[in-house]
Design a protein around this nucleic acid. Sequence first.
DNA 1: TCATCACCTGGAGA
DNA 2: ATCTCCAGGTGAT
Length: 281
Amino acid sequence: MHNITTINLNFTINSGQVFLWDKIEDAWCGINGNDLLVVREPFQIVSAQRQARHFFRSDDNLERILRQISKDSLVGMAVKQFSGLRLMRQDPFQCYISFICSSNSSIRNIRNMLKRLCVKFGDRVEFEDRQFFTFPQAYRLANATSRELLSCGLGFRARYVRDAARATDSGKIDFEYLRKADYRSALEILKTVLGIGNKIADCILLFSLDKLESFPIDRWTQRILQKYYPKIFDSVTGKSLTEKKYMYLHEKIVEHFGPYAGYSQQFLFKLERDLNKKNWL
DNA sequence: TCATCACCTGGAGA
DNA sequence: ATCTCCAGGTGAT
């Protein structure tokens, strides 16, 4: 049960990384790009499940990472409390669009927007007599009309989504290039897309492009830093996070939490949201 | 460079 | 029921 290879799907899926997952009977079903993933608990990664291994980042040296981030005592506590919580390696395009949609919205609402995009622009797949819709290809969203996007409830994000899809479709944004690029360069490139600022860029980098030093700083993360680390992160006081402040904070964060700060963030985020009884999916 | 403010929408809380 | 408020931010002034 406390084997380090055992994944707790409930913790993992309900930690704000993904939006298109549903628990159906005893299985968790999720959309990842063009794939439908179906997993059941207790879930243990075995070598044969190549796709699942990749998705759940089983290539990470988890023992080393958890040891490293547990040097911080609060993170260490969260690692024990949420044993089995993992970072996922999502389809980059889906992750990119998902977090662009997350802007000034709630998890429930984000999920609704994305589901409607899948139904309207994705492909229908069947599994065990149930219907699912995969995530749209970039060209489908790039060619969508604003009326169609608005009908999915995107609101002011419709323009962002269409422009972002066009950037991918035209090759201006190349995820495999970004995956190989260093953290800072990749961040700057993502931020050239309308609707992507520091926070959303960090989410995309952490959840789909293997940048484990990313530490998205949002309302919750700010709150966590202020509440538990008032001395170290005393610069989080103001409401607005300016560009300079964000960069400075990120430096301090990596200095304190280490090169796997992204994993730390995931445990802390889960801890604080649960503590405040916030809903997930 | 920094602080304010508007922004679509729908769910939760009063 | 009806209304207000706000939600994992960003872009424009």
